[in-house]
């Protein structure tokens, strides 16, 4: 497998993106606890390596299709932090003008199509984008994220089969965080490696440690190059773990504490931070960039709170 060397500077950039996602999600969580933010949340902290490893280095013209847990993917694809935060508050200048909310963030200008809150709903859509790119003779690609739960939807079967038979430039990324809401994946499929399902569509499938950003990026680089060269889709399974519950009210009573402990010990942020230091990046430099991101997030929160609400009657626009 092609292992394109990732430079130290690039690793620092990747770390910044991962740290941004972590702190964004943590900040959102507290805003919810305070009661200042409306709606519900499905958070992605713990899965930062998957988002950044897959999307780092992609072009704005490459597409990304996310799920009800989109924040990490969107930030890693380049959706602006402020427009995301404004959307979380339902503000007029949110990335969806307040009409989408937490589960539909995105910005097609940077290739992030509106996130999809129907489990598996984005899989055939990603195939459609891939078909369009092929018909338009472009060498852009589509990265389509979904969870382990989506692998039991009919849309998974139909969408991946379609992309396979037409050799579409789509990278299907299953973030297997072991639970579909509260239901353990081991109880809903006889096939424990979701990547194994690739063989039933005649395409390549890989299971990778989803908490290791460099391992994720290595397989991403391979699959993206393959897709750019017209060699069709790949199914990548990233084994990972979400730190929070499925949604805002989920205290994870169904998760075994030993299991949590084991996974939290493999936190993608702390382990990658250590990797950087082992490579000689000074901790003070890391702290300085972390502080800068913390400030950016606070600025975004203040900006969002100060931003105008949409007019109620704006609800009647954008239907047709």
């Amino acid at each position: 497998m092609a292992n394109k060397k990732v430079s130290k500077d690039q690793m620092v950039e990747m770390y910044k993106e991962m740290y941004l996602i972590r702190k964004y999600e943590e900040r959102i969580y507290y805003l919810f606890l305070e009661g200042t933010m409306p709606g519900s949340i499905h958070q992605s902290h713990g899965q930062e390596a998957s988002a950044v490893g897959m999307l780092y280095g992609l072009r704005d013209s490459d597409y990304m299709a996310s799920t009800h847990r989109p924040a990490g993917h969107d930030l890693a694809k380049g959706v602006s932090l402020k427009s995301m935060m404004c959307e979380m508050f339902g503000k007029a200048n949110g990335c969806c003008k307040g009409k989408g909310g937490a589960m539909h963030t995105g910005d097609i200008k940077v290739g992030a199509i509106p996130a999809n809150a129907i489990v598996g709903g984005n899989i055939p859509i990603a195939a459609g984008i891939g078909l369009a790119l092929k018909m338009q003779k472009k060498d852009d690609v589509v990265v389509c994220f979904f969870g382990d739960g989506a692998s039991n939807e009919g849309s998974f079967h139909e969408g991946i089969n379609g992309a396979a038979i037409w050799d579409l430039p789509v990278i299907f990324v299953c973030e297997n965080n072991l639970y579909g809401a509260s239901t353990p994946y081991r109880t809903v499929s006889k096939v424990q490696n979701i990547a194994d399902r690739a063989s039933s569509y005649g395409i390549e499938g890989y299971s990778v440690d989803g908490n290791d950003v460099l391992a994720v990026h290595e397989i991403a680089t391979y699959a993206v190059n393959k897709a750019r060269n017209g060699l069709g889709p790949t199914l990548i399974e990233l084994k990972t773990y979400r730190i929070p519950g499925h949604s805002r009210s989920d205290a994870c009573a169904y998760r075994n504490k030993d299991e949590e402990k084991q996974w939290f010990a493999k936190d993608p942020i702390t382990s990658f931070r250590k990797t950087l230091m082992d490579l000689g990046v000074k901790e003070e430099d890391i702290i300085s960039l972390e502080n800068k991101i913390d400030e950016e997030i606070e600025e975004a929160v203040e900006f969002a709170i100060a931003s105008p609400d949409p007019l109620p009657e704006d609800a009647l626009n954008d239907v047709y």
Partner: peptide, 10 residues
């Protein structure tokens, strides 16, 4: 789904 996705991008 392919109709939706392809329509989204031109």
């Amino acid at each position: 789904g392919v109709a939706v996705g392809s329509a989204m991008v031109g």
